[in-house]
Deep mutational scan, measured.
Amino acid sequence: SLSVDNKKFWATVESSEHSFEVPIYAETLDEALELAEWQYVPAGFEVTRVRPCVAP
């Protein structure tokens, strides 16, 4: 099958004044980091952490 098993990760994104967490959907932690950097670094943010979303 061609289905992709995307998992939810939380990326911590920082600017000079703010820090916030955004959801990233990817297959692996490395891919989540790449996606977060691709989305947020060009906008002037720094991705400081990516972690798996742990269900309660």
Rank of each mutant, 00 (worst) to 15 (best):
residue 1 S to A: 11
residue 3 S to A: 10
residue 3 S to P: 08
residue 3 S to Q: 13
residue 3 S to H: 12
residue 3 S to V: 13
residue 4 V to A: 11
residue 5 D to S: 14
residue 5 D to A: 14
residue 5 D to P: 13
residue 5 D to C: 15
residue 6 N to P: 11
residue 6 N to M: 14
residue 6 N to H: 08
residue 7 K to R: 07
residue 7 K to I: 11
residue 8 K to V: 13
residue 8 K to I: 14
residue 10 W to K: 04
residue 10 W to M: 10
residue 13 V to E: 00
residue 13 V to M: 05
residue 14 E to K: 14
residue 14 E to I: 12
residue 15 S to K: 11
residue 16 S to G: 10
residue 17 E to L: 07
residue 17 E to I: 07
residue 17 E to N: 10
residue 17 E to A: 05
residue 18 H to C: 15
residue 18 H to M: 12
residue 18 H to D: 09
residue 19 S to L: 05
residue 19 S to D: 03
residue 20 F to N: 02
residue 21 E to M: 06
residue 23 P to W: 09
residue 23 P to L: 15
residue 23 P to H: 07
residue 24 I to M: 03
residue 26 A to K: 00
residue 26 A to W: 01
residue 26 A to L: 01
residue 26 A to I: 02
residue 26 A to E: 01
residue 27 E to T: 14
residue 27 E to F: 10
residue 29 L to S: 06
residue 30 D to K: 14
residue 31 E to A: 12
residue 31 E to P: 00
residue 31 E to N: 05
residue 31 E to Y: 05
residue 32 A to F: 03
residue 32 A to L: 03
residue 32 A to N: 00
residue 33 L to A: 05
residue 33 L to G: 03
residue 34 E to K: 15
residue 34 E to Q: 10
residue 34 E to D: 07
residue 34 E to G: 06
residue 35 L to G: 02
residue 35 L to A: 06
residue 36 A to K: 00
residue 37 E to S: 12
residue 39 Q to F: 14
residue 40 Y to N: 04
residue 41 V to P: 05
residue 42 P to E: 07
residue 42 P to A: 10
residue 42 P to W: 09
residue 42 P to I: 07
residue 42 P to G: 08
residue 42 P to S: 09
residue 42 P to H: 09
residue 43 A to H: 12
residue 45 F to C: 06
residue 46 E to Q: 14
residue 46 E to W: 14
residue 47 V to P: 04
residue 48 T to E: 03
residue 48 T to V: 14
residue 48 T to S: 05
residue 49 R to D: 15
residue 50 V to E: 02
residue 51 R to M: 07
residue 51 R to Q: 08
residue 51 R to E: 12
residue 52 P to D: 07
residue 52 P to I: 11
residue 52 P to S: 08
residue 53 C to N: 08
residue 53 C to T: 06
residue 53 C to S: 09
residue 53 C to M: 06
residue 55 A to C: 13
residue 55 A to N: 12
residue 55 A to E: 13
residue 56 P to W: 11
residue 56 P to Y: 10
residue 56 P to D: 11
residue 56 P to A: 10
residue 56 P to G: 12
residue 56 P to I: 11
